[in-house]
């Protein structure tokens, strides 16, 4: 009986060790070597770690990642919330809102990027065409660093706002109707209801959505890499993208592993800080 429990866990454990623990160990080992993409390696001590703290690209990629996170997160959360509030009302076309707001989240990133690349085109792109018709000038959506970051954020909002929308929608449906009915009897306006009842009761959802969004944004790669195109746009390169490029474009598996570890440490610190903060707040209640 004592042993049989282990056998239930064993299949998962084998995969877990093989494809999570072992790569973690390989990465740690590689980070102190000059390992290249073909596997030959020599011990170099802490040289990779020394190099990465001096590497301006590491810092700029971290910076871009931070910019992306702090600009996209509030917009995504807010848009998701607004969508949920709009779609939670009992109107016949409710299904349409759900489809419209959530469908983009179900698309693979490549499809999202293809569509938006098409929308951002100069001349025959839908957005620039609209701007021209309104008498405004065309915008080079992906041609300067600053605009490229804006375009990436816009695309990301369109793609992922549906996730927050769904979480908020679920939370809204759990708020008892009696609360609204009672406050309506007290003469509260819908706006007051929103401020005094809805938003406070959503506080746990806010926290969840914001934390998940921040953690996802810090790990951003797909849409930044794909929207940047062939040569890449150095002014928007994210840290995960730099890990990818160091390992596979510059063939430096050792160095890329070192950056991975430092980035992992950073994520772990952020997660721990969040954990401590929520734990502290929880105990106060």
């Amino acid at each position: 009986m004592k042993r049989s429990g282990f056998w239930f866990v064993a299949p998962f454990l084998v995969l877990y060790v093989a494809f999570l623990v072992v790569p973690m160990a390989i990465g740690l080992g590689a980070s102190v070597t000059d390992e290249g993409i073909t596997g030959h390696a020599a011990f170099v001590g802490a040289a990779n770690y020394g190099e990465l703290f001096q590497d301006p690209v590491v810092w700029s990629s971290l910076w871009h990642t931070l910019i992306f996170t702090v600009t996209s997160t509030p917009v995504i959360v807010l848009v998701g919330l607004v969508m949920a509030l709009l779609a939670d009302r009992a109107v016949p076309e409710r299904w349409l809102y759900r489809l419209a707001f959530f469908a983009p989240y179900l698309l693979p990133v490549s499809v999202v990027v293809l569509i938006w690349n098409w929308l951002y085109q100069p001349g025959f792109g839908l957005i620039n065409d609209l701007l021209t018709r309104l008498g405004l000038g065309e915008v080079g959506w992906l041609s300067t660093d600053g605009m490229a970051m804006t375009s990436i954020v816009i695309t990301t909002v369109w793609w992922t706002a549906g996730f927050g929308f769904l979480l908020y929608l679920a939370a809204l449906q759990e708020i008892p109707h009696q609360l609204y009915e009672a406050s309506a009897l007290d003469g509260a306006t819908p706006f007051q209801q929103l401020r005094r009842i809805t938003l406070p009761l959503l506080s746990r959802t806010h926290q969840l959505v914001i934390v998940l969004q921040i953690l996802a944004s810090l790990k951003v790669f797909d849409q930044v890499y794909l929207l940047s195109g062939q040569g890449g746009i150095p002014g928007v390169r994210s840290i995960v993208q730099y890990i990818y490029e160091s390992g596979f474009t510059r063939f430096r598996v050792g160095y890329a592993s070192a950056i991975s570890y430092v980035f992992f440490a950073l994520i772990a610190v952020i997660a721990l800080v969040h954990f401590r903060l929520t734990a502290a707040r929880g105990s106060k209640r």
């Binding site: 070597t33 390992e35 290249g36 390696a41 170099v44 040289a47 510059r250 430096r252 050792g254």
Partner: peptide, 11 residues
Amino acid sequence: LVRLQNTPRPA
């Protein structure tokens, strides 16, 4: 060029 030349060449 200094940066590229100083970048350790992958093994």
